[in-house]
Simulated scan of single mutants.
Amino acid sequence: MEILKPLNNPKAFFVKIEEGEKLPEAVATAAKELDIGLAFVHCIGGFSHARIAVYEYTTSTYHYVNVKPLENHVLEVVALNGNIVCDKGDCRPHLHVAVARKPDEIYAGHLVEATVKPFIELFIIDAQAAPSEARRILSHRFTLKADIKPMEK
């Protein structure tokens, strides 16, 4: 086990992501603008669509489903959690999400992509870690080569 100790007290930021913006790109952009090395993220809000995947480790493949809301609705983001590591402006989010299409229909897994509608309320907790140490411990984030394929029915 490796433990990364913060340099200072963690800092928290709030970012409102507007309709039409894409995730995870908007999370990476916010982290870059805030000059973050390592952070934890939590979001709520809505999507007009989402691509959500599960990882098959034996083939290093993410198998995804595309989720769309009911007519005149949004996908309700029940929870979106993850972390982000940045090094020299290269920010790599790792996000997991649970979205509700309707109260008894939930989709969950790794967030591959999503379009925001009407907004996302993003909380970023900066761990105040040294970027080089964060990158060393999370080096797999920069080297993992995974395929992304549709989920077979």
Results as ranks from 00 to 15, higher is better:
residue 52 I to L: 09
residue 100 A to C: 05
residue 15 V to M: 02
residue 99 V to Q: 11
residue 11 K to D: 02
residue 57 Y to M: 12
residue 90 D to E: 13
residue 87 D to T: 05
residue 110 H to S: 03
residue 70 L to Y: 06
residue 111 L to G: 03
residue 100 A to L: 10
residue 28 A to W: 04
residue 99 V to A: 12
residue 17 I to W: 00
residue 97 V to E: 01
residue 3 I to V: 14
residue 141 R to E: 09
residue 65 V to R: 10
residue 12 A to S: 13
residue 149 K to T: 12
residue 14 F to S: 11
residue 20 G to Q: 02
residue 110 H to V: 04
residue 149 K to R: 15
residue 116 V to F: 01
residue 13 F to E: 09
residue 147 D to T: 13
residue 122 L to I: 08
residue 74 V to T: 14
residue 68 K to A: 11
residue 81 N to T: 15
residue 67 V to L: 05
residue 60 S to K: 15
residue 34 L to P: 00
residue 47 F to S: 03
residue 104 D to L: 10
residue 38 L to E: 01
residue 112 V to R: 06
residue 79 A to W: 05
residue 67 V to M: 08
residue 84 I to T: 01
residue 124 I to E: 03
residue 113 E to N: 11
residue 102 K to L: 03
residue 6 P to S: 13
residue 72 N to E: 13
residue 122 L to R: 02
residue 110 H to N: 09
residue 121 E to Q: 06
residue 16 K to N: 14
residue 65 V to G: 00
residue 139 S to L: 11
residue 65 V to D: 15
residue 92 R to F: 02
residue 26 A to S: 15
residue 10 P to I: 03
residue 65 V to Q: 14
residue 106 I to H: 08
residue 31 A to I: 03
residue 14 F to Q: 12
residue 135 R to E: 15
residue 18 E to A: 11
residue 116 V to Y: 01
residue 47 F to N: 02
residue 103 P to F: 03
residue 129 A to V: 14
residue 68 K to C: 05
residue 14 F to K: 13
residue 2 E to K: 07
residue 13 F to Q: 04
residue 17 I to A: 00
residue 132 S to C: 01
residue 1 M to W: 12
residue 15 V to C: 07
residue 147 D to C: 07
residue 91 C to F: 01
residue 132 S to I: 04
residue 67 V to R: 06
residue 111 L to Y: 04
residue 24 P to C: 08
residue 25 E to D: 12
residue 1 M to C: 05
residue 67 V to N: 10
residue 145 K to I: 06
residue 62 Y to G: 00
residue 5 K to N: 09
residue 13 F to T: 02
residue 87 D to N: 09
residue 6 P to F: 08
residue 53 A to S: 14
residue 141 R to C: 07
residue 9 N to V: 04
residue 138 L to M: 11
residue 113 E to S: 14
residue 120 I to Q: 04
residue 145 K to R: 14
residue 57 Y to W: 13
residue 24 P to A: 08
residue 26 A to I: 01
residue 62 Y to M: 08
residue 5 K to S: 09
residue 72 N to I: 00
